[in-house]
Nucleic acid binder design. Sequence first.
DNA 1: TCTGATCTTTACGTTCACGTCAGATTTCAT
DNA 2: ATGAAATCTGACGTGAACGTAAAGATCAGA
Lengths: 154, 154
Amino acid sequence: MTDERTEMSLRIGDVARLVGTTPRTIRYYEEIGLLPEAPARPSGRHRLYTHAEVERLREVMRLKHLLGVSLEELKTLLTAEEARAEVRAQLRREDVEPTRRRELLDESLGHIERQLELVRHRASELTKLEHELCETRKRVRRKIRELEAQAVVA
Amino acid sequence: MTDERTEMSLRIGDVARLVGTTPRTIRYYEEIGLLPEAPARPSGRHRLYTHAEVERLREVMRLKHLLGVSLEELKTLLTAEEARAEVRAQLRREDVEPTRRRELLDESLGHIERQLELVRHRASELTKLEHELCETRKRVRRKIRELEAQAVVA
DNA sequence: TCTGATCTTTACGTTCACGTCAGATTTCAT
DNA sequence: ATGAAATCTGACGTGAACGTAAAGATCAGA
């Protein structure tokens, strides 16, 4: 591969800049198990990341922002993501027996559905709030129109 | 009014139970200015609340939950709400001059629109995420179907 | 009026999600 | 090889949002 060098050449500061956070945050996420710790890194050496890991971190922060959950809850949600990644990895090697493949895919589907349920619930709550605000706005606008009408009469 | 007694008979523990929180939280919200402190309460006496205030607290906690903002941000958002309440109070007394009424209503409209903008933005982000999850689910489902097909052939 | 439940203020404690500092180490570029 | 820049590992600090404990006051009911 031509980009074997560029693939792994991202250092923690670069990653932080790319996703708009700080090195400390990344280390913290690794510390609490939210991000996997690079397994083959002798303690003391610099962490190296791939672009794929940058994307993953982006997704993590997006979920955190959108769902507003604690990092602990997020971790359980992402354990699902982890599992899915595992599934994809296993599936690429075609040598898994169909029974096992089926199990993995079903599990995957379950995780997605759990996330979807959560997201849908919040989305519907927000939409409800949006409608309510629109109603209120309508009422205020009507009052303003009434006021205008009065002004014309007077 | 027949319910002047029941109106003001809610104590802080009742309110907490009604909205699903604790007295401490309510006092804290008052302390940081998120909730108005009952003006005519000599220090040391028990706080008394009306059902209207319960509703208001419910709304506050709902916004906090849905928008996921800090209490400080929430306070500025609710200052708008406060202003709207003020407007309604002033408008009920019909003796405000139309010019002033117009000003108040316009201000009100502005506040609502700011909130609406915030809510809409988040709602759209969430909906986007929802669609993405649906897409992923579709892909997983297709893979499962493919697997089933294979099984039939074999 | 008395009593037990609830509330008051004051103040220190706690958890989460990082920030910040220090001193040693590693990496990159020259 | 060497110096500057970035990173490493602890460790302690911090702000937000409450929890908790203490000691006394207030309130509702008998």
